[in-house]
Nucleic acid binder design. Structure first.
Lengths: 263, 263
DNA sequence: CCCATGCTATGTCAAATGACAGGGTTTGTT
DNA sequence: AACAAACCCTGTCATTTGACATAGCATGGG
């Protein structure tokens, strides 16, 4: 997992560390090297560099956003993995989706007041921070970026759609395989799983909250999948011995190889 | 349900009727009167009028888009209700979401090649058709529209998020109530349920496919809700006697009253 | 070393949900 | 009247999933 230790910390927050900086570091953006991303043109990049406010860091388990609040910043994920969760009043929790490097956090926050979900870091993460108030400038001045943003929104929508299909139509084991395939694929695309094994700490309780299953049933299903040699999912890693077979088992379509833009 | 009979039909399709026209009818757009929509400025509207290609009509049950194809047009819903569905190879079907007047159909289609879902008319519908190929012009020339599009995408995302919470955390009855509240609320916002009762033909089999339940269990749960006087959902209408109580039962947040933009 | 903590595993029973089969009702057609 | 189609309802039984209780197993701190 992204281990970003050399913190240039300045402003201490109750959660997260803010690193104000003019943006010249954009020219050595960590997203440049990632296989699954397509790079912005250099003048667009200059504009992004001027737009950004600084960098933010959070440790595993820290909340980046809290449901029902009004976020001051929007972010692009520079490194690490986060999850988007929703809480019901009675304590039930649903994990809605995941964010990998290159993903944009905050469309909802940009346009509405309060956000309907929380965002929590699953690993140590580094985020590129933009001011929420200046969001409209982006659409007005940079049609390409606005287009990219719409692209990201549409693809996020497609991912949620897939998740809905899982929850609605697939049984416990199929759901797990579908989720594992999704995560590993995103890991490969963003350079977090170069060898096809995603090193990511996910507890069974988190898996349960993603898939809408009880903890116990999650445990049993994981064991079954391990026995079937379909998915080997431990606390710290996800391994899929045979990707094609896993896809077939969960009745997943073949992956779409389109490179993602980022901001 | 929208009964648009005075067809000025010209081009007969195997499904749907296309009405080519320059767009002067935009100035008497049926979306103008709807309570939940916020109207575009008049110069933006003129631009939309020039952008649009014509009008398309479909009857209940007809497919507007088929999963896996490459749609030539993008649409804004002028009247009627549609649903977005996904099919698994083995025949299982998941209904992903619904489209009401003012909704934009096609972000995914605009940006990718093939679309991952089908779109089917639940009533007779009229759609405003835009050419897919000219989509980028919109972002480049009309920042306000591009912004609105992003707004719609973000809110579609929020709706799917809510749906995921339902499927993942709520039991059968709660899911039904949540769905009923969602549909009736959208009906009220778009003028389809002025008296709080949504006149919309939905079969129990469709409800089952939205909620990820079996047909039989759907039937029983519907009856239970009728007995509890929470939701009275018949083949042709949805009535919620006490909205506040229904919301409490399904543990739904209060509705966000933000008016939607449209294109 | 002990202890606390957080996570995974297992057993037993109960509740929710699904599968199958069949009957009833409405509506439209001949 | 007869028929068919599409939908809704009900009974019975099987399967999946959840609830609760408990045990095991690492890891880290004193």
């Amino acid at each position: 997992m992204a281990r970003d230790d050399e913190l240039i910390g300045s402003d201490r927050n109750e959660q997260g560390q803010f690193v104000r900086n003019g943006g010249q570091r954009c020219m050595e953006c960590p997203l440049e090297r990632l296989p699954g991303l397509h790079q912005p043109l250099s003048d667009v990049r200059r504009w992004i560099a001027a737009f950004r406010e600084g960098e933010m860091r959070f440790g595993r388990g820290e909340q980046v956003w809290a449901q029902g609040t009004r976020p001051p910043y929007l972010y692009t994920v520079l490194s690490g993995v986060l999850m988007r969760t929703r809480l019901l009043e009675d304590g039930r929790r649903q994990i809605v989706n995941f964010m990998f490097p290159g993903d944009f956090i905050g469309l909802q926050g940009a346009l509405d007041g309060e956000i309907s979900h929380s965002v929590e870091a699953m690993t140590n993460v580094a985020l590129c921070a933009f001011a929420r108030g200046r969001f409209f400038e982006l659409a007005a001045q940079q049609p390409q970026l606005s287009f990219d943003l719409t692209w990201l929104a549409a693809h996020e929508e497609a991912a949620l759609e897939e998740h809905i299909v899982s929850l609605g139509q697939r049984n416990a084991r199929e759901r797990m395989v579908a989720l594992a395939v999704f995560l590993v694929q995103r890991g490969i695309d963003t350079g977090l799983a170069p060898d096809g094994v995603l090193q990511l700490t996910v507890t069974q309780s988190q898996i349960a909250d993603m898939l809408g299953l009880s903890l116990v049933h999650t445990n049993r299903s994981l064991q079954a999948l391990r026995r079937l040699a379909l998915v080997d999912w431990t606390l710290t890693s996800i391994r899929i011995p045979n990707m094609a077979e896993a896809r077939r088992f969960a009745r997943l379509d073949s992956p779409s190889p389109a490179p993602r833009p980022y901001i």
